[in-house]
Design a binder for these strands. Structure first.
Lengths: 249, 249
DNA sequence: TCCTTCGTTGCGCATTATGCAATGATGATT
DNA sequence: AATCATCATTGCATAATGCGCAACGAAGGA
């Protein structure tokens, strides 16, 4: 659509990985140095990128401000935060995530870190795999049928573990079950030995606006134990939905 | 430099203020609807903006991720954080800021909120007034003379309060004194009844790489009381400088 | 059901971004 | 300290790309 703009956005995404020199940027974009430089200068003028003493480019400070403002604009996050913290505490310090559907992807909006020192690869702002996470399934399950088909058609059913759902047919079955029971499991489908349960947050009209999940490593609690957390998970999502409905007061 | 890119960046900055419709965006940029739409679509494709059900545009989730990554790339922030928290605690729960010079501006990199419920207008990522804040003075004071002159020439000596420094000559005097004594005051120059003291953080070569300030409302502590916090402030900045010098280990 | 409002698409024009080649600055190496 | 090498920067000609116009389509309200 807008060539120079998409190139500039690719620069920002690339700089998210780490610092780059002008030549590196030009090589990545496959354009002439001059072109890369003009884009970088424009970005720099508005503090979207920053140049250090050694002519390396970094993400600029404007992105701090926009980042926090973008988070603030997702009002559901503020409503959910206390409930997420409570859910994490009630389930014995497990990792809790909040995610929302945006533009064909499930995006993590908030995260409560596990008190156990097991690290998971997830980060606020990054997308969650739609076919291999509890929040992904919950969010896709409630999409309008037309959009749901489009999204499913676009999924790359790449296996993360031996249990990852491998095709669209199996995925549709799971989505149907998710809608019926109001929650869903992820039994080591994204990371081996990590089981999750997820459930939807709904607005006044009953539409799914976000998803919450609890993730537990096998060594802490076996799969059946994780399933036993579902009542607490549902209590949390229903509380968030209720707070959301009554938020204008 | 790059017209379409600067327009797109203006869109992002504008959306930081709140949601906008397509027509509003076009009006702000003073371009045709079509032009605004193409920019917005490009931004949306990479999740820099998000469209809600009512066709309003918001900042997108990619900015969360970039925002946190941008912060992570300012390594000084991680080094300073524990010292800032300790300084805040030692001074009785005052507001503490960390700022760095970037592209002609002083940018807040971290903030420890005051435990008193006095709110100050500052936010991580936003620029601090160079002539009316302690961190602004500290950072400009140590700039190479050439760049310093250019920056001073660009300052709009707009008064915030009756005590705000009003011209370049007075500002230069204060900068000289700042260099001599190694710290500086802001006596109600930015907000009435709020006094601050600020001091520099230096790298191995002695160059100023950041500034730390403590801000105290008059009702909590009078101006002389704030000046008495300088030893603790200097202890903190020196500790940060030392940690920074030995960080590679 | 009609009307209004707002987003979307196709198209021709020219403004704007691009690549090239030469210049200037910076830093490393001997 | 001097030379070389590397890398950023500038001017300029070309055409590709982004632009505005006008007509179409969709959605929401009266």
């Amino acid at each position: 659509m807008s060539q120079s703009l998409s190139r500039a956005l690719r620069i920002l995404i690339e700089l998210g990985e780490g610092e780059r020199s002008l030549d590196q940027v030009a090589a990545i974009l496959e354009v002439h140095k001059t072109t890369a430089m003009r884009l970088l200068h424009t970005l720099e003028a508005d503090r979207f990128v920053r140049r250090d003493d050694h002519q390396r480019y970094h993400l600029g400070s404007r992105l701090f401000a926009l980042g926090t403002m973008a988070l603030a604009q997702h009002a559901i996050r503020d409503v959910a935060q206390p409930h997420l913290a409570r859910l994490a505490a009630e389930t014995g310090g497990q990792a809790v995530h909040l995610a929302a559907y945006e533009n064909g992807a499930a995006i993590y909006l908030a995260k409560v870190e596990s008190t156990h020192s097991v690290r998971m690869y997830s980060r606020v702002g990054l997308p969650a795999a739609l076919h291999a996470t509890a929040v992904g399934k919950v969010l896709v399950a409630d999409l309008p049928p037309g959009e749901r088909d489009a999204v499913i058609a676009g999924i790359d059913f790449r296996p993360f573990t031996s249990r990852t759902i491998a095709d669209a047919a199996g995925y549709r079955d799971v989505l149907a079950r998710t809608r019926e029971q109001g929650w869903v499991e992820d039994a080591g489908e994204h990371e081996d030995f990590i089981n999750c349960v997820g459930a939807p947050v709904r607005d006044e009209a009953g539409r799914v606006i976000a998803a919450v999940s609890v993730s537990v490593p096998d060594v802490i609690l076996p799969r059946e134990g994780v399933r036993a957390l579902v009542p607490q998970l549902l209590a949390a999502t229903e509380a968030i939905s209720a707070d959301w409905a009554g938020r204008s007061s």
